[in-house]
Simulated assay, not measured.
Amino acid sequence: MRLNLYELYKNKMFTISCIFMFLLFTFSLFGQNVNTPASSAIKANFTMASVKAYQESATLKVEDYYQYLTLLSSESTSETLKTEIKTTIYSLFESENIKVIDFTSTENATISLNELIDKITNKNYSFSVSNFENSIVATDYWTTQYQLTITQNKIPMKFQYYQKIGFKPVVKTFGTTKKEVWTLFLGEVTLP
């Protein structure tokens, strides 16, 4: 059976069209994968008014963190409660190995959250925070600046700190349903 020139041309065009469509489909998938992180960007999912509300919530988390440190540092807090407080503190952060400022030393070096907790336990520190200022929103975090007042033996010390606040979608399970929920995490603490 002999094919005429028109059928040969038609078959060749069909093959070229298939290859073109395949390449187009492949590159469009690749392009979607490149854009996936943008879909998890804060600005892509929230208005600035919503972000401000979350930033207010984050300042409350920072205040909670220092209140928990006060309880943990108190000699009058029971050991059972201290264990619960440590668990709660760790749940505020993205990881237990987050770096924070060691205010117990004169060098203000950075240490892990675990190390700080060990250093202040039973040392009777009290903490208060004020003057919060939030930075411009980045892709999945912002920075909060605040003044920390630490008191030990009735001697107050004041520090100015920056703290990274992570805000990203996390898949959570509710019974048999899984849902993506945007969650706030405290991050590293640094000096200005």
Rank of each mutant, 00 (worst) to 15 (best):
A138M: 10
L23T: 13
S73P: 02
I155Q: 15
D102E: 05
K12H: 10
S91N: 15
S76A: 10
F167I: 04
M13S: 09
L29A: 08
I165H: 08
F167T: 06
I111L: 03
S40F: 14
G166E: 13
M48A: 06
N4E: 02
P37Y: 10
A38K: 15
P156Y: 06
L72V: 05
T183W: 10
T121G: 00
Q67D: 09
P37R: 08
I117N: 05
K86V: 10
F93E: 03
I155M: 11
Y162K: 15
A44D: 11
Y90V: 05
P156A: 10
A53I: 15
N33F: 11
E180L: 14
S57W: 03
N97H: 04
K12T: 10
R2V: 07
S126W: 02
A44T: 15
K10G: 00
I117G: 05
S39R: 12
F185D: 07
A38N: 14
E56W: 00
Q67H: 06
S95Q: 04
V129Q: 01
M21V: 15
S112L: 04
Y141L: 00
T15M: 06
L72C: 04
L92I: 05
F20T: 15
V100C: 07
N11Q: 14
Y125R: 05
E75D: 08
K82V: 09
K168S: 13
P37I: 04
Y9M: 07
I98K: 06
N153D: 15
T121I: 12
S95N: 12
Q147T: 15
F185C: 05
K86E: 12
E188I: 03
K179M: 13
Q67V: 02
A58K: 05
T59H: 07
I136F: 03
L186M: 13
W182F: 10
K99L: 12
S105C: 01
S135R: 06
V137T: 15
I117D: 04
G175P: 10
I117Y: 03
I19N: 02
W142K: 07
I16W: 00
I111G: 01
K119T: 04
E94F: 01
K10V: 04
K123R: 12
S105D: 06
Y90D: 10
S57Q: 13
E56A: 09
E7N: 07
F127G: 07
K10W: 04
N124C: 04
T36W: 08
A109G: 02
S95V: 01
P192A: 07
S95R: 05
A109E: 14
L72Y: 15
I42W: 07
F20E: 00
G175I: 04
S17Q: 08
T80D: 11
T104V: 01
K119A: 06
F46K: 07
T143V: 15
T88W: 06
L60K: 11
Q67Y: 11
N33Q: 12
L191Q: 15
F22E: 02
N45R: 14
V34M: 08
F22A: 14
Y90I: 09
F159G: 03
F20C: 07
